[in-house]
Write a protein that binds this DNA or RNA. Structure first.
Length: 431
RNA sequence: UCCGCGAUAGCUCAAUGGUAGAGCAUUCGGCUGUUAACCGAAGGGUUGUAAGUUCGAGUCUUACUCGCGGAGCCA
């Protein structure tokens, strides 16, 4: 069957067509009744005049509950007064299922109620817009790498050990092999991929069992992680800024309607173009001191510190060369200062914080062995990773971009839970 | 784990220690162009749980449960 959708009504002006969807809202005024039809691609006002349709149809146009599934036939005409600019002069209405007492009414709701009804909340205008932007971001991410000869290589979800040692992991029994953990990053596997394929990226769900209870955390979130052989920290930053520019500019061009629905002020997003500022950790600390923040050199930047630093710029800022102490074991030390790691964080503007974290990796076998010992990590489970340094090691770099944080930033959301269809948080794993 | 805030109708919220209220939703009625339409009417309550103070508790006290916001940690 050939379906017609609201998004391409402009091709049907003057024609009689049939549309399928859900009743979004309705209004009535004596002899004329308005039904707003929603089909996932848009919204359309369908008008029923008394006399133009049977008594029964005219009646049901007023009685149907929100989100009833319906099929409406009528003639398309341009109508500036109606949402979307088109209107359907309706002649027929078929009820597929009459919905009663839909929980999400046109007035305000609290977040707990909306999250309990997330499966229905997704039908709301803003949530539909967010999901469409999320989809376009995912496509932009894949297009960016695919068009530049990267190979998508999926890492395992079940892993035998912690990638970064520090974070708490979800555990699950694994047959006779003891405990398996849900991955918190595909990075180590991406490094193996980069040695096989040159340029790779992983893109999948990752899991953190930390009891983080903030608007910037989920226990299950999606991360894309490119990894490139023969790339140093500067190359890494070049990729990160071109990547971000590509994603943001693509979404601005192709999803402006959705961003309008979300009431996103896009002026700051327009600025996301190369070159982007690059400052060292030392310079970031200096910036904090200059703004009266008591910050001790050697600590990692906290959420409020990140906001203060990023507020000094009108586009994303890259902070590089962090104290090695606070960073992961696999990061290469700065040859010019052994206390620093060749790490890279990208802070989004407008208080959205860290959206990218990456580094140049330690490619020297002996150095890496020392790091593993320093961090008290079990060397035997990392033997395969050490092999990458034994057999044709090369300088290589990569980073991870948090998908939900990126969606949240571009959509201007105030919480990550709206950036993913079914959010998983410490006190919620339903629906 | 720590700090702060909250829980009253299906939903969002009111109610000086003294008869439990409104809007939305639902049902009924009205209106020939509505834009979260509007106007009129009706039904809808063990005020999170347990105990205490009081002549009297939605309101004060204590404990518990659940949720929200933030910190730490991170993407």
């Amino acid at each position: 069957m050939q379906q017609i959708h609201i998004s391409n009504l402009k091709d049907y002006v003057g024609q009689e067509i049939t549309l399928q969807g859900w009743l979004f809202n309705k209004r009535s005024s004596g002899k004329v009744r308005f039904v707003i039809l929603r089909d996932g691609t848009g919204y359309l006002q369908c008008v029923f005049f008394k006399g133009n349709v049977s008594e029964e149809i005219f009646d049901s146009a007023d009685k149907l509950g929100q989100e009833s599934s319906i099929e409406i036939t009528g003639k398309v005409k341009e109508e500036p007064r109606a949402i979307g600019g088109f209107e359907l002069d309706s002649t027929d209405l078929k009820i597929i299922q009459a919905s009663q007492e839909y929980p999400i009414t046109p007035k305000d709701h609290g977040i707990e109620f909306l999250l309990d009804n997330r499966h229905l909340w997704l039908r709301s205008k803003k949530q539909v817009a967010i999901m469409q932007v999320r989809h376009r971001i995912i496509k932009a991410i894949r297009d960016y790498f695919d068009e530049r000869d990267y190979t998508l290589m999926d890492p395992p979800i079940l892993t035998p050990n912690a990638v970064e040692g520090t974070s708490t992991l979800f555990e699950t029994p694994y047959f006779d092999l003891g405990t398996a953990y849900l991955t918190q990053s595909g990075q180590l596997y991406a490094e193996a991929g980069a040695m096989a394929l040159g340029k790779v990226y992983t893109f999948g769900p990752t899991f953190r069992a930390e009891k983080s209870k903030t608007r910037r955390h989920l226990t299950e979130f999606w991360m894309v992680e490119p990894e490139v052989a023969f790339a140093d920290l500067d190359d890494n930053m070049d990729i990160a800024e071109e990547f971000l520019e590509y994603i943001v500019q693509t979404v601005l061009e192709e999803k402006d309607e959705e961003l309008k629905i979300l009431e996103r002020d896009t002026s700051m997003l327009q600025n996301v173009k190369r070159p982007m500022p690059r400052i060292t950790y030392d310079e970031a600390v200096e910036l904090l001191h200059k703004n009266g923040v008591e910050f001790e050199w050697g600590k990692d930047l906290g959420g409020t510190d990140e906001t203060l630093v990023s507020n000094q710029f009108d586009k994303p800022v890259m902070v590089h060369r962090y104290p090695a102490e606070v960073k992961a074991f696999y990061m290469k030390r700065d040859p010019e200062n052994n206390n620093l790691a060749l790490a890279l964080d990208v802070l989004a503007p407008e208080g959205y914080g860290e959206i990218i974290g990456g580094s140049q990796r330690e490619d020297n076998l002996d150095e890496l062995l020392d790091r593993i010992k320093e961090h008290n990590l079990p060397q035997d489970t990392f033997e395969w990773y050490l092999d990458l340094r034994r057999y044709g090691t090369v300088p290589h770099s990569g980073f991870g971009l948090g998908l939900e944080r990126t969606v949240s930033w571009i959509c201007g959301l105030d919480h990550l839970r709206e950036a993913i269809p079914f959010p998983r948080m410490i006190y919620r794993n339903t629906p």
